[in-house]
Design a protein around this nucleic acid. Structure first.
Length: 368
DNA sequence: AAATTTGTCAACCGCATTCCA
DNA sequence: TTGGAATGCGGTTGACAAATT
């Protein structure tokens, strides 16, 4: 052949560049209905003129419900620095220790902030060291030896304890003795927090108050998948698909009326849609009974499952989902209303929101 | 106020790895 | 076992905003 690797998609037929809010919503709604089994075919099925890779990236780095936005905390930065000392530029592995942070984000933070900060620090240290050397002429190897004791000589132990004061060495990369298995993000977090051999002290719950010292131990190789896992997946898929019968008829108008069922005024507000987005809303409206309120649907499959599970906090999950929706609205800038009180974008996001509020929980099969 | 430089970060690109028939 | 397809990953780019001159 000799023509090199075939491109993943036809670039001339595929849109590139920043994602529009409508594209985001289209991707979100599709994934929350169907999950993703095949990124390559997903854009076609979802009606997106995007490359599958681009969809995947957008989802993982931006749209996933558990993506944490905003500045990194000092603790997170310290964690990155320390993990980088052991893992080098293995951004995805570093990300697996920072709940809600993506490899891309961490990479950006490292390249824009941390690397420079460390370079400065090292320069400072170097100057100090040079001064010390010229003063005393006795070269101290303490930092080197302590470093080696932490990184190089622990063949017998899987646990690495990184002490303070090693930042100056952060621009060096060291491969861990044993490679940390790449696992599903959430799965690994759960595993690590429950395992007695658990690793870094920065999981979703205690990241904000983790101590300056970070224990980085190498997790044990991921155990063989539980036999129930397949069943669970099926159940989850069921929860995505079985909300009830499809919503029919003039979708946008009817939809708004239904939402107001709880109040006395059965106001019907026509949602004007751009021509290009009509099929999107058709798709949303064809989803299974998207207007069933959470409080009125005690028998949603996942709730049913939850009622049988002792450690499932359903309300937390719902709150989590709603919070994510609020963040998403802000993020996409779709919350402002026009003078008539119901702007077009506001209506559209409302419409999507009503659907998304029926999610019992973020689909569990959507991890990274 | 305008031009230029610097910083940030989302998105792209292409290679590596894994999966599967 | 093999080869193609799909996905994962890390490096890089480019658009935009903020800061500086």
């Amino acid at each position: 052949m000799g023509r090199g690797r075939a491109p993943c998609c036809d670039k001339s037929k595929v849109k590139t560049g920043p994602w529009s809010p409508a594209e985001d919503l289209r991707l979100i709604s599709f994934i929350h209905k169907h999950g993703y089994s095949n990124w390559r075919s997903l854009p076609i099925q979802a009606g997106l003129s995007r490359c599958g890779k681009s969809c995947r990236l957008r989802w993982i780095n931006y749209l996933r419900p558990d993506v944490k936005r905003g500045n990194f905390t000092n603790e997170e930065e310290e964690t990155i620095i320390k993990l980088h000392q052991t893992l080098g530029n293995k951004w995805s592995k570093i990300a697996s220790y920072l709940p809600g942070r993506t490899d891309n984000e961490i990479k950006n933070v490292w390249n824009t902030h941390l690397k420079k900060r460390l370079a400065k620090k090292e320069e400072k240290n170097h100057k100090n060291q040079t001064n010390d050397f010229s003063r005393t002429s006795s070269f101290s190897t303490s930092s080197t030896s302590s470093f080696m004791s932490s990184y190089g000589n622990n063949e017998d132990t899987e646990e690495l304890v990184l002490d303070e004061g090693q930042e100056g060495l952060a621009n060096k990369s060291y491969e861990p003795k044993e490679d940390i298995p790449t696992t599903d993000h959430d799965h690994e977090l759960k595993e690590s927090s429950s395992s007695s051999n658990s690793s870094i002290s920065c999981d979703a719950s205690d990241c904000s108050n983790s101590s300056a010292q970070v224990d980085v131990s190498i997790p044990e190789p991921e155990p063989e998948p539980e036999p129930e896992e397949e069943e669970q997946e099926e159940e989850q898929e069921g929860s995505l698909f079985n909300f009830g019968g499809p919503c029919e008829a003039d979708n946008a108008t009817i939809a708004y009326d239904q939402v107001n069922n709880n109040s006395d005024d059965h106001q019907v507000i026509e949602i004007s849609l751009e021509e290009s987005d009509v099929d999107f809303w058709d798709m949303l409206d064809n989803l299974d009974d998207p207007f069933q309120s959470i409080n009125e649907s005690p028998q949603l499959p996942q709730e049913l499952e939850a009622s049988q599970s002792s450690n499932y906090d359903h309300h937390t999950e719902i709150e989590y989902c709603r919070e994510w929706l609020r963040d998403l609205e802000n993020e996409l800038g779709l919350v402002e209303a026009t003078s008539d009180g119901v702007g077009q974008l506001g209506s559209e996001i409302d419409h999507a929101k009503r659907y998304f509020q029926t999610w019992p929980s973020p689909p569990q099969n959507l991890g990274v």
